[in-house]
Design a protein around this nucleic acid. Structure first.
Lengths: 119, 119
DNA sequence: CCGTCATTTCGCAATTCATCGAAATAACAG
DNA sequence: CTGTTATTTCGATGAATTGCGAAATGACGG
């Protein structure tokens, strides 16, 4: 099985289906916790075992969650000796996701064309 | 310089459970489509009927999805005559969600303490 | 080759979710 | 009050997800 992400680099390329599955990948408390742990760990990543120890999720369940995150392009996996090292690549992906959602703000807006501040 | 010090308590208030359910609310293709339609419509919002016509989701299913989005704090609803007007309030929420996820980037990072650019 | 550690696949029960139609509620016009 | 339009609640059904333990796979040391 491919470890590679399916998520393209540009926001415009993210179609609805892909964006929805990425959000869905984030929409589980355990997976979000796993991903945050990886974000905290930084680019060096963590092995599945360490990740399990830090999050309290172990074995086949953790494998499953990491796979979901990897398929959503939020995490990479690479074998290193006997371990699988997982690392978050969420930074860009999350930015693209929020851009996907907010990008065309007011595109269909009837009356308001002035710039207005959303943050 | 800590990233924490730049971002106020707003982000910290979102706990894991809340963030996960907000992401889960976004993690359905139909709901994401509904929300994007509302974002495009801007602050004036749309009635449930119009929203259904634009997204192809109608009746009880749409009611259900809008309720999920509203509970996640992504949408507001207000009665206006016979219609319910829905409007996206996703702008801040989505920003806070991504901040929640990325905020403590590298907090546990062993070796790297220099600032490094993630976007 | 054999044993061991790290991770994954598989099969399965329990739970949650999406979707639909029919009936119920709410606002308004007459 | 009665009828019409807009939306919601309810109940049911099938699909998807979660979580788990046991067996399988892959990598390494001796």
């Amino acid at each position: 099985m491919k470890i590679e992400s399916q998520i393209p680099a540009l926001t415009d390329d993210l179609d609805l289906t892909l964006a929805a599955s990425a959000f869905a990948a984030l929409g589980s408390e355990q997976r979000l916790s796993v991903l945050r742990t990886l974000v905290r760990a930084g680019p060096e990543g963590l092995s599945i075992g360490t990740l399990g120890a830090r999050t309290g999720v172990t074995g086949s369940t953790l494998t499953h969650h990491v796979k979901v995150l990897a398929q959503a392009g939020l995490v990479t996996q690479a074998r290193q000796g006997r371990s699988i090292i997982c690392a978050a690549v969420a930074y860009d992906t999350v930015r693209h996701l929020s851009e996907f959602l907010l990008n065309e703000c007011c595109a269909d807006c009837a009356t308001l064309t002035k710039d207005h501040d959303h943050g």
